[in-house]
Amino acid sequence: MKKLSMKFVTTNDDITTLTINEVREDITDEEVNSLMEGIITQNVFYSSGGSLVKKKSAKVIDVTEAEVAIA
């Protein structure tokens, strides 16, 4: 499973992170940039640090899960 972690700068110069679980394997940099710009432009999220106003960084994280036997 892959996760997309996006960091934004807020109006108070704080950093806030949005994470999306189970993103497509073939997601592109252009799609991530477009998504982040849309989030900022449409002002769809608000954090304790204020509105999201600037992209800081983004990364795709590959998560491996393994069941643990509980005795």
Score class of each variant (00 low, 15 high):
58 A>C: 12
65 E>S: 12
70 I>A: 13
46 Y>N: 14
25 E>Q: 09
18 L>W: 04
40 I>M: 00
19 T>M: 07
30 E>P: 07
14 D>M: 11
67 E>L: 13
22 E>G: 06
32 V>R: 00
3 K>E: 04
15 I>S: 04
40 I>Q: 02
13 D>E: 15
41 T>S: 11
1 M>P: 01
51 S>K: 12
27 I>V: 09
11 T>M: 03
20 I>C: 00
10 T>N: 02
25 E>D: 11
64 T>M: 14
71 A>V: 09
56 K>V: 14
48 S>K: 15
51 S>G: 13
13 D>L: 11
60 V>K: 06
45 F>E: 08
2 K>A: 12
7 K>M: 11
31 E>P: 01
69 A>R: 15
42 Q>C: 11
54 K>H: 08
63 V>H: 05
42 Q>H: 09
68 V>S: 10
15 I>P: 04
28 T>F: 01
29 D>W: 02
49 G>D: 00
2 K>L: 07
66 A>Y: 15
37 E>T: 10
13 D>V: 10
20 I>S: 00
45 F>M: 15
1 M>H: 13
51 S>Q: 15
14 D>A: 14
49 G>R: 06
12 N>Q: 14
30 E>K: 04
59 K>A: 05
42 Q>V: 07
12 N>M: 08
18 L>E: 11
71 A>R: 13
54 K>L: 05
38 G>H: 06
12 N>C: 08
37 E>I: 07
68 V>R: 11
57 S>L: 07
69 A>K: 15
42 Q>L: 10
10 T>A: 05
63 V>M: 07
24 R>F: 02
5 S>A: 12
23 V>F: 04
36 M>Q: 03
54 K>R: 14
32 V>S: 00
67 E>A: 13
15 I>M: 09
56 K>G: 01
3 K>H: 14
44 V>S: 05
61 I>L: 06
64 T>L: 13
62 D>R: 08
6 M>D: 03
42 Q>P: 07
1 M>L: 12
41 T>V: 10
38 G>N: 09
53 V>L: 02
21 N>K: 10
14 D>E: 11
29 D>T: 09
58 A>Q: 15
47 S>W: 03
41 T>N: 13
61 I>Q: 05
70 I>L: 15
27 I>H: 00
35 L>P: 02
32 V>T: 03
25 E>H: 12
40 I>Y: 03
20 I>L: 08
43 N>D: 14
31 E>L: 00
52 L>A: 02
48 S>A: 10
59 K>D: 07
17 T>D: 02
15 I>R: 05
50 G>S: 04
39 I>M: 01
17 T>G: 05
11 T>H: 01
17 T>F: 02
61 I>E: 08
26 D>W: 04
56 K>D: 05
37 E>M: 08
26 D>Y: 11
59 K>N: 11
13 D>R: 08
37 E>K: 10
66 A>D: 15
45 F>Q: 07
29 D>R: 04
67 E>G: 12
3 K>Y: 07
59 K>T: 09
19 T>R: 02
2 K>F: 09
13 D>F: 11
32 V>D: 00
50 G>C: 03
32 V>I: 10
3 K>W: 09
36 M>V: 04
18 L>T: 01
19 T>E: 03
69 A>W: 15
22 E>P: 02
51 S>C: 08
57 S>Q: 08
49 G>Q: 03
29 D>N: 06
4 L>P: 01
71 A>F: 10
21 N>E: 09
50 G>Y: 01
5 S>L: 05
26 D>H: 08
4 L>S: 01
4 L>K: 01
